[in-house]
């Protein structure tokens, strides 16, 4: 997407410069002691990073499917849920999170393949119908999992070696598991970047994304690219389920809240550039934690939603908006 810079420079750059300037000003003010931030807020900001990491983990699969194949996968939350249940099964068979990650990736990628081949491939050009169809898939998955596993909450533990935490600043230790989640978020983004920008496959993906008809007429099998990307994005959702299960709860209805968070990240960040995901996640994660520190979680969530609505008014395509060539 490097070549797109020219078209998106104006809007994106303005926002980036504004954001960067604000952060830089804050850092300078704090460093010089002009304003003092209490330790509580600093530790809260660090926790906010882990919240942002969780958002990245949840949203990256959705973003890549939306960005390349143009499908808003309404079953994304349920894909995460299937990943979490996979982790629960792996756990009962004696494996830990590290084992669960590849297994969940494979299981949910396969699920993605079935959904794509069975349903989505026939309706790519009808966005509204893909919305409805994937919504339906989500409901089916929820009921299926409930039939198989029963309605009770499932237990997934964290690996022993990630117990405990490291004392950084403030009263609270920083849990190792949250550091692991930050690492996972970076890893998932890095793998995606590598795949899209450094491989031959990624070149084709970018070509399809830029101009589907042209790419097709140059001999790229666009349907196959769509399928693989759908599988990859689904697999990432599975990984998200597997790594989030140990700190959250595992139930058949867990998908919904992740789906909402992921859509927010994408709406705010934009899908024109993969940087949109971490940017959106970082803003939402930090805003939510910092607002909730002074007030409470209900107001935190509310104000973040208000903020996003306003942001959409200003940058309808997200911070990294992408001007399509039609």
């Amino acid at each position: 997407m490097l070549s797109e810079r020219a078209t998106t420079l104006q809007t994106t750059n303005l926002w980036l410069i504004a954001l960067g300037a604000a952060v830089a000003l804050l850092v300078v003010l704090v460093a010089t002691g002009t304003i003092t931030i209490s330790q509580r807020y600093i530790s809260q900001m660090m926790i906010g990073v882990s919240v942002a990491a969780i958002l990245v983990i949840a949203a990256v699969g959705l973003a890549i499917i939306f960005g390349v194949a143009g499908v808003i996968n309404m079953a994304h939350g349920q894909f995460i849920m299937v990943g979490a249940y996979t982790a629960a099964v792996v756990g009962q068979l004696g494996g830990n999170t590290f084992v669960a990650i590849p297994v969940a990736f494979a299981v949910v990628a396969l699920l993605g393949l079935i959904v794509e081949r069975g349903i989505i491939q026939w309706i790519y050009d009808r966005p509204l119908e893909t919305l409805l169809a994937t919504w339906g898939v989500g409901i089916i998955l929820e009921v299926l999992v409930k039939v198989i596993f029963g309605p009770e909450l499932y237990y997934v533990g964290a690996p022993r070696m990630l117990d405990g935490g490291i004392r950084l600043i403030g009263r609270l230790p920083y849990p190792y598991y949250r550091l692991f989640l930050i690492g996972m978020a970076i890893l998932m983004l890095a793998v995606t970047f590598y795949l899209v920008f450094k491989t031959n496959f990624g070149l084709k993906v970018r070509a399809v994304r830029r101009n589907r008809a042209m790419a097709g007429s140059l001999g790229i099998n666009t349907a196959r690219i769509d399928m693989l990307i759908f599988m990859f994005g689904s697999g990432l959702a599975g990984v998200a389920g597997a790594v989030l299960a140990p700190i959250k709860s595992v139930s058949t209805t867990m998908g919904f809240s992740y789906a909402v968070d992921s859509y927010m990240v994408i709406v705010l960040g934009g899908v024109g550039n993969l940087l949109g995901v971490p940017t959106g996640a970082f803003i939402i994660g930090e805003a939510e934690t910092l607002i909730a520190t002074g007030t409470n979680s209900v107001i935190g969530k509310l104000l973040v939603f208000v903020f996003i609505v306003v942001a959409i008014r200003i940058v309808p395509r997200g911070i990294f908006g992408y001007q399509e060539r039609r």
């Binding site: 809260q44 919240v51 403030g170 009263r171 959250k248 809240s257």
Partner: peptide
Amino acid sequence: EYAPLGHTEFSTVINNIAG
């Protein structure tokens, strides 16, 4: 403090408790 129904991210709450 109250969290929305179904809320599963409690890091802020826990930090508030610690403080």
